[in-house]
């Protein structure tokens, strides 16, 4: 087929995938250009390492190429793609045991690099340092979460997917998802608060130990 513009959305993802089935590498290239950033973001937040995230990104699109025939169109293409990405990230974490290798400090350093590159565009150096510290703390807190919690937080807060899509990607039933997400968020808040060095106090009321997943001590509804 002729060259398709990378962001020409008149050609749908599904049409491109259909072309991938026929071994059209140009179609895969367009799919890659369209989705590399969100997929990379997910992988980077899960793996906390640029090299591994890049390798995993390549793996994801090789899997898309090979599994193009298995896409039935029951779900959205992006949901299917994120599902492959989430499974690839899990495989990476398990096979290389990154979780054991990456310490909290590594997270601080790598996120620090990202923050520095973002800060290079800002004017006030004091402001950029504050921003860098803030990003480093959030990144370190994310690294402190379990694999499942990190995936939920990444999909909901960073990829901004809705509950239905997240439920499909993670295989968690929709009813359970909100509770799990709430608990993951509370754990992240707790870790952030610990890294901030401040008092956890009110932030942690009824968070992780609360089996119902709801806050204790809230006032009565009138």
């Amino acid at each position: 087929m002729g060259r398709i513009k990378d962001y020409d959305f008149s050609v749908s993802n599904e049409m491109l995938l259909e072309l991938c089935k026929q071994q059209d590498q140009e179609a895969l290239r367009v799919l890659f250009r369209r989705h590399e950033k969100p997929v990379y973001n997910l992988l980077y937040r899960m793996l906390s390492n640029h090299e591994d995230a890049e390798e995993a990104l390549a793996d994801v699109f090789v899997k898309v190429w090979r599994a193009a025939g298995s896409f039935k169109g029951d779900s959205k293409f992006t949901t299917w793609l994120f599902k492959i990405a989430a499974n690839t990230a899990r495989d990476f974490l398990r096979s290389r045991m990154i979780r054991r290798e990456v310490s909290l400090e590594d997270g601080l350093v790598s996120e620090g690099e990202v923050a520095r590159s973002a800060a290079a565009r800002t004017v006030d150096p004091e402001d950029s340092t504050l921003r860098e510290d803030e990003l480093s703390r959030i990144s370190a807190a994310l690294n402190g979460l379990s694999e499942d919690d990190r995936l939920l937080i990444t999909l909901y807060h960073f990829q901004e997917l809705d509950y239905q899509d997240i439920a499909e990607i993670t295989g968690i039933c929709a009813g359970n998802l909100k509770v799990k997400l709430f608990r993951a968020r509370q754990r992240l808040k707790k870790l952030c608060a610990e890294l901030d060095g401040g008092c956890v106090g009110n932030e942690l009321r009824g968070s992780t130990d609360d089996s119902s997943g709801l806050r204790q001590g809230a006032c009565e509804w009138s």
Binding site: R29, F32, Y44, H50, E54, E55, A58, F61, V62, V114
Partner: peptide
């Protein structure tokens, strides 16, 4: 406020 990160290298070369 967490920024979007982008791949440092062109990963398409690997995929291709």
């Amino acid at each position: 406020a967490v920024p979007v990160v982008e791949p440092v290298n062109d990963v398409w070369v690997l995929v291709r």
